[in-house]
């Protein structure tokens, strides 16, 4: 599903150059649940943003479903992101001016669904995260856990095959974190590929596969650096299933 090879990402300011990712290579298979850990500033968010086509990179190749994303226009990247990728953020990032219904509506609008299709998808997604009755609430009227579930509903509404979550439980207490984790596991069982950045080793352990990013490079959590060959990659994934 996702093949990154020798990705390099540099942030340049007037004074410094930060190598956020260097020779970053990773393969993720369809249906996997990958937990990403690593020290602060190691490049986890940068990796997710590149994976989600929100950010470009200086060198290397990235194939999403076999398609080289580097050659795509902004419009094509946006359409691809809209159709295939769902984002979940640590700080939920619901749009404060819109109620829950309209928040979940956002990705569907850019997809061009008609009104009936959108309504059906929105209500389904909200039912799925247990917020069916609160679609008229504004984000500020919901608890943190509810907000994150609404954000997950928003990510799910377009039925993406690939879910990117950046510390989705970081702002939640442990009970709510567990609920969100259970929800993500359920989604993954439905066939959606998930890559989740987390600082919580307990949550990471529940994923099929753990990788660690240190200094902008991938280190496998227990097996050491991931071998470059894809067949080894698949083997390394199985022990955690």
């Amino acid at each position: 599903m996702l093949n990154m090879d020798q990705i390099k990402k540099v942030f340049r300011t007037d004074l410094v150059e930060t190598y956020a990712l260097r020779d970053f290579s990773l393969n993720v298979q369809e249906g996997e649940f990958v937990a990403v850990t690593g020290p602060s500033g190691s490049g986890k968010t940068t990796f997710l943003n590149i994976a989600g086509l929100l950010e470009t990179f200086e060198a290397g190749t990235y194939l999403l479903d076999g398609e080289d994303v580097n050659s795509l226009s902004d419009r094509q990247r946006s359409a691809l992101r809209n159709a295939k990728i769902g984002f979940i953020f640590q700080s939920f990032n619901l749009i404060p001016d819109l109620n829950i219904f309209d928040n979940v509506d956002v990705p569907l609008r850019y997809r061009g669904f008609n009104g009936r299709q959108r309504k059906e998808r929105i209500m389904n997604a909200l039912e799925r995260v247990g917020l069916g009755a609160r679609f008229k609430h504004m984000p500020s009227q919901l608890s943190g856990g509810q907000q994150q579930r609404a954000a997950i509903a928003r990510a799910l509404a377009g039925e993406p095959r690939f879910l990117l979550a950046d510390e989705p439980t970081g702002n939640l207490d442990s009970l709510m974190a567990r609920q969100v984790m259970e929800l993500l596991e359920e989604i993954n069982e439905g066939g959606t590929t998930i890559v989740m950045v987390t600082h919580d080793p307990d949550l990471a352990r529940r994923a099929q596969r753990n990788i660690q990013i240190v200094d902008g490079q991938v280190t496998d959590f227990q097996l050491g650096p991931i071998p470059p060959a894809p067949e080894n990659d698949r083997q390394s994934a199985t022990p955690y299933a």
Binding site: R75, S78, N82, F87, D97, V106, Y110, G158
Partner: peptide, 16 residues
Amino acid sequence: APSVGVRRALGASKKA
């Protein structure tokens, strides 16, 4: 800008 960032993440193109 933050909600624009969210919209972009959810699939809005620059043009949109």
